[in-house]
Every structure is written in structure tokens, then in C-alpha cells.
Amino acid sequence: MSSSDIFIGEIIGTAVLILLGGGVVAAVVLKRSKAQNAGWLAITFGWGFAVLTAVYMTGSLSGAHLNPAVTVGIAIKDGDWKNVPVYFAGQLLGAMIGAALVWIAYYGQFHAHLTDPEIVGDPADKAIEGPHDEAAAKAGPVLGVFSTGPEIRNVWQNLATEIIGTTVLVLAVLTQGLNDSGKGLGTLGALITALVVVGIGLSLGGPTGYAINPARDLGPRIVHALLPLPNKGGSDWGYAWIPVVGPLMGGALAAGIYTIAFA
């Protein structure tokens, strides 16, 4: 496959992944959404279906890595790093496009959520209570539409959780059997990996929200920082390195385990 195929395929696939994955989070957490309060099961299965759709859609074009941790794992396994920067660039750009599409699709719900006095407080109270950020902080779930965050902020635990979850994901990818090009999942592997993502969400998603994908977290976080959302609060850049570094470490660890145990 050519570099242009990889770049275009990763943009499209990662955009669809984030559109459907971020979309299910928006559906569950935002006010005036028909799916509000549908719960964690809806989110985990929504992300699994997002993976399945995106991989089937672009597998023949780029191999549908859709995740820098997967790209790193395959590169270590094969010893071929030539197209890694192209994969990374397509994945990050695609994630940003997908996040922007979620904002467009749920524009009214974002506005209704972030201007609701029950969520951000009464404007008349802001002058009494203090700075604008006090009200904005109450809108925290909105950042969760775009990126992940820990329920308990503990650096070593949060990092370990992301490493463990991503190791499971990438090892599953490497052991399901790649397609004829050897650069992406085969048809059956795509289905199994989507179910693995659901399983990771159900079992390991509670502590950090299971980014398990640097592009999935960083791209939408950048979009959150740039979008003109009222009362949106900060983008939590102090935490942002964990869902980038942790999954990359997990991808490398999975490749090492694969090389030792399965190759």
C-alpha cells in the first residue's frame, strides 16, 4: 500500500472511529439527548461498534491501524518503521476531524448542556461565587466527550491502567491474524478486536475511561481546547500525557510479549 493510501485511510478510519465513539459518549452525557443516562454499557458497546465500522471501512486501504499504539506494535513486530510517521499523522488528523463532527452533530445538545443553570450555575450567582472557572468546572462531563480522565488522580495507577489495557488490545491485534499485506487486521480479526475493545471497556475502563489510543485522546483534546464552547472548562493538559505515553508503552510491551511467546 502506498503512503497516500495509508494517510487517507487512517484519516477516514480514525475520523469514523471518533465520530461514532465520541458520539455515543455525547449521546449518554449531554442534556436533551434521547440517549441521556443510557449508561456505561451503551458507551462500551458504542466504542466497540465504532472500531468495527472503522476497521471494516478502511482495512483494505491502510490496514486500519487507527491507533498509534497498534502502529508501534506492528512496527516492532515487523521491524519496519518507514510509514510510521504517515500513520501517526493520519490518525491524529482523523481524530481531530471526528471530534469536530461530534460537535457539529450534537451542537444543540452541547449548548443546552453548557448553558443549563442546573449544570453550570445561575449566571447571577457567578459574580458572588467567584471566577468563571467555578461554573465551568461543573461541566466536566463535556470534556469526557472528547478525551479521557481518571476517576482517581494517581499518576502511577493511571499510567499502569492505560499500559495494561493497551497491552491487551495490541496483543489481541497481533494474535488475531493480519491481512494479506501483514499491515492490518483481517476480516475475522476486526470483529474479534472490536469485541476485545468492548471487553477492555467493561473490565478496565472504570479507572481512566480507557483511552488505549494516543490519537483518540490527544486529537479530540486539541479540538476541545479550540472549539467555542461556553463554560467548557479546561482541557486538563496536566493529565494529557498519560493517555499518550501509556498506550505507546502498552503497544511496545505487547509487541515484546508477542515476539517472545508467539513469533
Results as ranks from 00 to 15, higher is better:
residue 199 G to P: 10
residue 38 A to W: 14
residue 205 G to W: 11
residue 151 E to T: 15
residue 20 L to I: 12
residue 227 L to Y: 10
residue 206 G to E: 06
residue 33 S to C: 02
residue 127 A to E: 15
residue 85 P to S: 14
residue 157 Q to L: 08
residue 110 F to D: 04
residue 176 Q to K: 09
residue 226 L to Q: 08
residue 107 Y to K: 15
residue 248 L to A: 08
residue 136 A to L: 11
residue 45 F to G: 00
residue 194 A to H: 01
residue 249 M to R: 04
residue 225 A to F: 12
residue 39 G to K: 09
residue 100 A to T: 14
residue 20 L to Q: 01
residue 231 N to E: 10
residue 207 P to K: 04
residue 60 S to Y: 06
residue 38 A to F: 15
residue 122 D to I: 08
residue 143 L to C: 02
residue 146 F to D: 04
residue 124 A to L: 10
residue 74 I to H: 04
residue 104 I to N: 06
residue 172 A to P: 00
residue 71 T to Y: 03
residue 173 V to N: 00
residue 225 A to L: 13
residue 155 V to Q: 13
residue 142 V to R: 09
residue 70 V to C: 03
residue 88 F to G: 04
residue 258 Y to F: 15
residue 66 L to Q: 01
residue 211 A to G: 07
residue 36 Q to M: 11
residue 76 I to F: 13
residue 137 A to P: 01
residue 12 I to G: 08
residue 130 G to T: 08
residue 82 K to W: 09
residue 16 V to H: 03
residue 83 N to T: 14
residue 159 L to K: 05
residue 148 T to D: 06
residue 212 I to A: 10
residue 188 L to Q: 14
residue 29 V to T: 14
residue 197 V to Q: 04
residue 28 V to R: 01
residue 68 P to Y: 08
residue 224 H to G: 08
residue 205 G to P: 07
residue 112 A to Y: 04
residue 189 G to N: 00
residue 93 L to R: 06
residue 26 A to Q: 07
residue 165 G to R: 04
residue 119 I to K: 14
residue 91 Q to N: 03
residue 163 I to F: 06
residue 134 E to H: 11
residue 143 L to D: 01
residue 182 G to Q: 06
residue 128 I to L: 15
residue 65 H to M: 13
residue 227 L to I: 07
residue 61 L to Q: 13
residue 197 V to W: 09
residue 68 P to N: 11
residue 104 I to E: 01
residue 217 D to F: 07
residue 53 T to V: 15
residue 11 I to K: 00
residue 263 A to I: 05
residue 143 L to T: 06
residue 9 G to E: 05
residue 222 I to S: 11
residue 13 G to H: 12
residue 95 A to C: 09
residue 35 A to W: 14
residue 40 W to M: 13
residue 244 V to T: 11
residue 43 I to H: 03
residue 192 I to G: 02
residue 230 P to G: 03
residue 263 A to T: 08
residue 126 K to Q: 14
residue 174 L to C: 08
residue 64 A to D: 11
residue 251 G to H: 00
residue 249 M to H: 02
residue 22 G to C: 12
residue 206 G to V: 11
residue 18 I to H: 01
residue 185 L to S: 13
residue 56 Y to E: 07
residue 157 Q to Y: 07
residue 12 I to R: 03
residue 175 T to F: 03
residue 70 V to K: 01
residue 224 H to Q: 11
residue 234 G to F: 07
residue 167 T to N: 04
residue 209 G to W: 09
residue 116 D to W: 10
residue 238 G to D: 08
residue 221 R to Q: 10
residue 42 A to T: 15
residue 181 S to Q: 13
residue 157 Q to C: 00
residue 107 Y to M: 13
residue 217 D to K: 11
residue 174 L to S: 08
residue 102 V to S: 08
residue 215 A to Y: 05
residue 202 L to K: 06
